[in-house]
């Protein structure tokens, strides 16, 4: 049963990686722009180029979740009340504005307003994505945990994604001092983004335990058969965040690309397991089993 959700799960992860990476690269770009415009362009332009294809891949995958993929264009017909329609508009808007903003950046223009609009579309896409789940009848999703999990993934993956792309661009050359300071801030944001959903997990489980029988079932799965995957997820994500911070903390002239990509792999693996558990433990409020 879960197999049919794989494209959807990969859509959520990849779109959040794209949005997070764009927002963090924009933060790095605008922060550096005050002191050194050339450096801001050199460090962020190649990374910003990668964001679009990731988002495009996410959107293509989302179509495979549908039973009738050729009708995908009709998914925007109920904007007045459906979060799924809003999500498609926001995700599509993010992709379109990414193209416009990147084209502007490539021409050497600052593109501040376009960048901010793109980031807002991305932020709204993640919000809509979380709301699609939160408006369901699955108690495990009808909680603030859904928003924490989705924004946590966005910023955790965004921070390591952006740092890896900057590290790749810097390969072989020294890290300029202002960039080092900003990348350290990015590493701290990654740590917060990883930690907040993990810290909330015990509160989330206790909320579920106090709820309906479906909520109980979800809580039992999270603290039972899915506990070990969650522990592995926590260890991987925290290890990734610690690795990223340790890389950025050291005063060094060259940013080790391998370690930055290692942090990306660890956090991506952690988020993948976390998202799998998110889908696998969501029990519908009415399954028929509740009646027996």
């Amino acid at each position: 049963m879960f197999s049919e959700e794989w494209p959807l799960m990969m859509f959520t992860l990849l779109s959040q990686l794209a949005v997070g990476t764009y927002i963090i690269l924009l933060f790095i770009r605008f922060s550096l722009m005050k002191n050194d415009v050339d450096l801001s362009v050199r460090l962020t332009n190649p990374g910003l180029k990668v964001v679009g294809p990731i988002m495009a891949l996410a959107l293509v995958l989302s179509v495979f979740h549908l039973g009738t993929p050729l009708g995908a264009y009709r998914a925007v017909l109920n904007l007045t009340s459906s979060w799924l329609s809003r999500e498609i508009i926001m995700a599509g808007g993010f992709f379109v504005f990414w193209f416009l903003s990147y084209s502007t950046f490539k021409q050497g223009k600052p593109g501040v307003a376009l960048g901010i609009v793109t980031a807002l579309f991305g932020f709204a896409a993640v919000f809509s994505n979380a709301s699609v789940h939160a408006m369901s009848v699955r108690p495990a999703w009808m909680d603030v945990n859904t928003y924490l999990a989705f924004y946590g993934t966005t910023f955790a993956m965004g921070c390591v994604g952006a740092t890896s792309l900057v590290a790749f661009e810097l390969k072989g050359s020294a890290v300029p001092a202002p960039a080092g300071k900003i990348l350290k801030t990015v590493a701290i944001i990654a740590g917060i983004a990883v930690a907040v959903p993990l810290v909330y997990t015990p509160f989330f489980v206790s909320t579920l335990n106090a709820g309906s029988s479906a909520a109980h079932d979800s809580a039992a799965m999270i603290s039972g058969s899915y506990l070990m995957p969650l522990v592995i997820r926590a260890v991987l994500s925290l290890a990734g965040a610690v690795l990223l911070y340790s890389v950025m903390k050291k005063p060094q002239s060259i940013l080790p690309v391998n370690q930055a990509f290692g942090a990306l792999m660890l956090i991506a693996a952690g988020e993948f397991i976390g998202r799998y558990v998110f889908y696998a433990t969501a029990v519908s409020i009415f399954t028929g089993r509740t009646l027996i």
């Binding site: 549908l66 039973g67 009738t68 699609v132 369901s136 519908s284 009415f286």
Partner: peptide, 26 residues
């Protein structure tokens, strides 16, 4: 109009809509 997104399956508290695999719609 249906595209088989299955969001109605996530939305009905009584588990009423049914996904029809062969038709790709509910």
């Amino acid at each position: 109009k249906c595209i088989g997104c299955k969001l109605c399956l996530w939305s009905c508290p009584y588990g009423v809509p049914q996904y029809k695999e062969d038709e790709g719609i509910i």
